[in-house]
Structures are given as structure tokens and as C-alpha cells.
């Protein structure tokens, strides 16, 4: 008789004392993250990220972004995510450059030119404001990205479900969170397919502009088709059936998580109150 995949082979390593018991379950069920930050409950990481974002934007001047940046640097080093955050920072570079250029040259009210060359007059005020805004943007995106790259989407959704978000809400959040990596993957494949049919995506700018429609159409139609297929696949597996769903994996929510979460939420509220009362800024 064929052995059930859920029953370990008595002679296998999985059944040996002292070794982790992999019962043939999928990796997303048996996965055990390691390290302090990675093992935090997803809701705790979201609360910390929310505090970081509020601090970056509500604490005036450089204090907020620099303080959060230092925290992020320590956590990123400890959780081995520095490289991923650097890539995300690099992806934001076009936006950073445009912020710098706009503020450097046309910051309203700036009257302290660094130099003048005809109509071109970059200002010190514009330079500092551009740097501050860019830093805020990079720290903000890094704070959100850190929570994202250290939290498997399955864990985030399972935790939300456990907290009573409801299966439709969980589906919406899951689809939104997974949309970006899925779209990136799809765009890569579509670009390969169109380049294989002679579409030039590496030539002059007007040639690249012409490539937008052949790239965009399959992305949009593919996404719509996928939504339809996923919806039917969910329905076929009793997604809307009444009754409570079984959770295959529930992320741990330890006392340290609860303490950290409360601390983060209280600190967040404190920053908001101080800002509104005018005690900072």
C-alpha cells in the first residue's frame, strides 16, 4: 500500500529523535524563519514599519530620517537584507534624481544661489531640501521594504486571517502584495517574447517608446485573465463556503511581539500627538 505523504517513513531521518519532523508537508507550512527580526510576528513588523514611516515624515528636519535610517541599518545587517534594500533604493533612484533636480533649481522662495550661469541658479536651500526629501523617500521605502522582504506573504496573510480580517479581505491584500513581483516577472517574459520577434528595446528612445504597446497589452490582458482564472480556481476550492477555514500555518505571536507592538503603537501615537501639539517642528 502506498504510504501517505503525511506519515513519515519509520526508517527515515525525519522520524529519528532529535531531528526536525518534516511530515512531507509543503515548504510554506514547515518553514521556520531564523533571526530576531525575521521571527517577529507579521503584525509586529507592520507596526514597527508604521512607526518608522510616521517618524520619517512627522519629525521635522534630519532627526527623524537619520534615527530611522540607523535602526534600519542595524536590522538590515542583522537580518541579511542589506543587499535587497540596496536594490530597492537603486530602483528609486530616478525619483530621487528628479526630486533633486527640481528642488535644486526651482525651489519656491529660495534666494541663496550656489552659483549663477545665465538663467540657471541652483540654490543651497534647494539642495538641502532636495537631500532631505530624497532621504525621507529612501528611508520610507526601506522601512516598508524591510517588513516586506523579511515576511513571507503566506505568513502575513495567515496572520491577518487569524486576526479576523475575513477571507475576502485576505484575498485582496494578498493579490495586492503579490501583484508587484508577479507583474515584474510577467513583464520580463513578455519583453523576452517581443524581443525574440525583433522588437528593439535597447535602441534609440523613439524605438523604445514604440515598444510600450506590445509590452503593455499582454501585461494588462494577462493580468485580467489571471484574475479571472484565480477567481474560478478559488471558487472551485470552496473559497466562499460558509464556516471557519483551517489554518495550515499560524505565525507565532509571542509575548515579546505583543510588547513590541504596543510599544511601537504608543510611540507612533506619541509622535503624532507631539507633532499636532507643536512640541516638535
Amino acid at each position: 500500500m502506498e504510504r501517505s505523504p503525511l506519515v513519515p517513513d519509520p526508517g527515515s531521518a525525519a522520524s529519528s529523535p532529535g531531528l526536525p519532523r518534516n511530515l512531507g508537508l509543503p515548504e510554506y507550512v514547515t518553514r521556520r524563519p531564523s533571526g530576531f527580526y525575521r521571527t517577529l510576528n507579521p503584525a509586529t513588523k507592520l507596526a514597527i514599519a508604521a512607526l518608522e514611516v510616521v517618524t520619517v515624515f512627522l519629525v521635522p528636519g534630519w532627526l527623524g530620517p537619520i534615527a530611522v535610517l540607523l535602526v534600519l541599518a542595524v536590522v538590515a545587517a542583522a537580518s541579511h537584507t542589506a543587499r535587497a534594500l540596496a536594490v530597492i533604493g537603486l530602483a528609486a533612484s530616478p525619483l530621487v534624481i528628479s526630486i533633486m533636480v527640481v528642488n535644486l533649481f526651482i525651489l519656491p522662495g529660495a534666494v541663496d544661489p550656489i552659483f549663477r550661469a545665465g538663467p540657471i541658479a541652483p540654490t543651497w536651500s534647494g539642495l538641502w531640501f532636495g537631500l532631505l526629501t530624497s532621504t525621507r523617500l529612501l528611508v520610507f521605502s526601506s522601512a516598508v521594504a524591510l517588513a516586506y522582504v523579511t515576511t513571507p506573504v503566506d505568513d502575513l496573510l495567515a496572520d491577518m486571517s487569524r486576526r479576523g480580517l475575513g477571507r475576502r479581505g485576505v484575498f485582496v491584500v494578498g493579490a495586492a502584495v503579490q501583484m508587484v513581483p508577479r507583474t515584474i516577472e510577467r513583464v520580463g517574459e513578455i519583453m523576452d517574447a517581443q524581443r525574440a520577434r525583433g522588437m528593439d528595446t535597447e535602441g534609440r528612445i523613439w524605438r523604445r517608446a514604440r515598444a510600450i504597446v506590445p509590452l503593455a497589452a499582454p501585461v494588462v490582458f494577462g493580468a485580467l485573465t489571471e484574475v479571472e482564472e484565480r477567481t474560478m480556481a478559488l471558487e472551485a476550492r470552496a473559497f466562499t463556503a460558509p464556516g471557519r477555514q483551517t489554518q495550515l500555518r499560524v505565525p507565532a505571536d509571542r509575548s515579546r511581539d505583543r510588547a513590541l507592538r504596543w510599544a511601537a503603537l504608543l510611540a507612533l501615537a506619541g509622535v503624532v500627538v507631539l507633532r499636532l501639539s507643536g512640541r516638535v517642528g
Binding site: 510577467r186 517574459e189 523576452d192 524581443r195 525574440a196 520577434r197 522588437m199 499582454p218
Partner: peptide, 22 residues
């Protein structure tokens, strides 16, 4: 260049939906 190679090598991808655009 890939665009030049396309004149010599035609590749029909596994998933048509990654290709159809018109």
C-alpha cells in the same frame, strides 16, 4: 544584438499570452 538575431532565430514561447499583443 537580440533584435538582429531575431532575423535569424524565431522563437515561439511556451505561453502565448506572454507574446500576443495586437
Amino acid at each position: 544584438h537580440v533584435a538582429r538575431l531575431a532575423a535569424r532565430v524565431g522563437l515561439a514561447f511556451q505561453n502565448p499570452d506572454r507574446q500576443l499583443c495586437a
